[in-house]
Design a protein around this nucleic acid. Structure first.
Lengths: 128, 128
DNA sequence: AGTATTAGATTACACTCGTAGTCAATATTT
DNA sequence: AAATATTGACTACGAGTGTAATCTAATACT
């Protein structure tokens, strides 16, 4: 395992989000989707798609004249990869310090906290 | 508040770490520090320092002929800023999904888990 | 069939980043 | 004082990114 996932830039990530939300999609479908949330020109989005293909993060189906694109990695895989390198960069590799900082942040609802507590409790039991 | 902290690149972050660990420092002191952990040439480190100054993330004392450098933001401030934008980018802004993913990762010790549970419990009480 | 439209391929260009090197002024050593 | 070393200022250069435009071949419309 431990698939080597190429790094995905900020704009490219937006494109990936669209593909994770449903694929395969034609370039036009991706463009439509993003037109709502960004003000990128169609050509820009096309470039991003091409770069993702070149990086081997997105696959292309060239059977039809109009290509369709699809992700080669799941969102979860990519999130983990990004988060891994982020934590190493910013928190010296220790997951806990990040968790502590974010739990203390205010953005969690009562419900979120309960869920986290449950997860922790379960984890503790399983690790016995 | 809500200070607008400029973005700090990966290599620059290494330099910041040295300064957070103790400042002010001369360029040479920073270079010494990093020579142990990286194989960057002194000029490279100097460039990074200059860029950080230019970005207004590091201050310079030019009173002496040999300048000394010091951070303009605390490590905690910078971590929060980076983490904020990271979460927005990768997790669509929801802190919880990141926490869940990382709690499930294996890198937490029994002790860490206890600490997190305590923090959550306290937080819940305080939020009443 | 000729022309307009569209999809894909190729090219562009400024800015950041990693990774230094050169040049000029000052300090130190002989 | 002359030679050398050090510090700071400025310059360099290729890869990656944000943000597109142009060129070309094929399809669709009149």
């Amino acid at each position: 395992m431990t698939e080597r996932i190429p790094s995905i830039s900020e704009s490219e990530w937006e494109v990936m989000t669209v593909l994770w939300h449903g694929a395969p999609k034609t370039a036009n479908e991706v463009i439509q989707s993003l037109q709502e949330r960004t003000d990128w020109k169609p050509k820009t989005i096309r470039t991003l798609l091409d770069r993702l293909v070149h990086k081997n993060v997105v696959g292309v189906n060239k059977n039809q004249r109009i290509y369709t694109f699809f992700p080669l990695y799941s969102q979860d895989q990519c999130q983990r990869a990004e988060a891994q390198s982020f934590i190493k960069r910013i928190y010296g590799g220790t997951v806990k310090s990040l968790l502590v900082q974010f739990i203390q942040e205010d953005s969690l609802t009562e419900e979120d906290i309960n869920e986290l507590r449950t997860i922790l409790a379960k984890k503790q039991k399983k690790d016995h």
